[in-house]
Amino acid sequence: MIPGPFVYHRPASVGEAVGLLAAHGEDARPFAGGHSLIPMMKLRMAAPSHLVDLAGISDLATIRDEGSTVVIGATVTQAALIRSDLLAARLPILRETALQIADPQIRTKGTLGGNVANGDPGNDMPALMQCLGATYVLAGPDGSREVAARDFYEAAYFTLLQPGEILTAVRIPVPPAGHGYAYEKLKRKIGDYATAAAAVVLTLDGSTVASAAIALTNVASTPLFAEEASRLVVGTSLDAATVKAAAEAAKAITDPATDGRGTAEYRREMAGVMVARALVKAADRARTGA
């Protein structure tokens, strides 16, 4: 399988990259790890005539600590997320999630920016970014703007990213030290997309939940921020009845497809199971400081 022909561009700055996309319009695609785009190009389901490789823009490959916010460049790979001591200390849920994506070789090339910008409902990072309340930095011909991850996704492969724009960075507010977290993903085998998955970040005040955020992967055409489920657990001790109620509230907003991973009914049920497991694990970690 050989992709169609294209002109290869390797700009050295975001400004140059945006200029190339503007000049070539619909025929041009930004390109990072290539592990979504190259397979589509081999199948000729994508045939861009210009590829704008972001690998030459060194600013995009950095992880920056800004105190209350961590800023991750678009071309930081999943492998780099896993290796980062900064993230291990301040946002350990990123490592936990990245380790459940694809396999080691693909994590060498796959990037955070590609994972969140592509709009594939099977990708794991979008729900995590919604859980964390992250914002995406989008650069275009008229400058740069920020969009909340919770507002970014419209439908499968449709996002607020406009033609000619590049997602350059993800800004993540750092949860307080001692927060609990978990990314629970049910999959048939390593490398698979989720049958259902849930991200949870919470804080405890004594034994009471002080704050909580829950989001879901691959159980609708977009990632889902489970607002009602998140609200339900705040102020409780996360007793069994509360966990069950939160799982039910999360299930209620899902709309999974029936596919090789199971029937819609099964996948909805599993979304609830993942939420329950993630809540219990996150609370446990917050209690024990693990």
């Binding site: 290869y8 390797r10 290539g34 592990h35 190259i38 397979p39 490789d53 690998a55 492998a79 080691p104 070789q105 693909i106 060498t108 090339k109």
Partner: peptide, 13 residues
């Protein structure tokens, strides 16, 4: 120093 699947990478990269 890293592992890559060479079927999913262009030579120019």
């Amino acid at each position: 120093g890293a592992s890559v699947k060479s079927c999913t990478m262009f030579a120019v990269q």
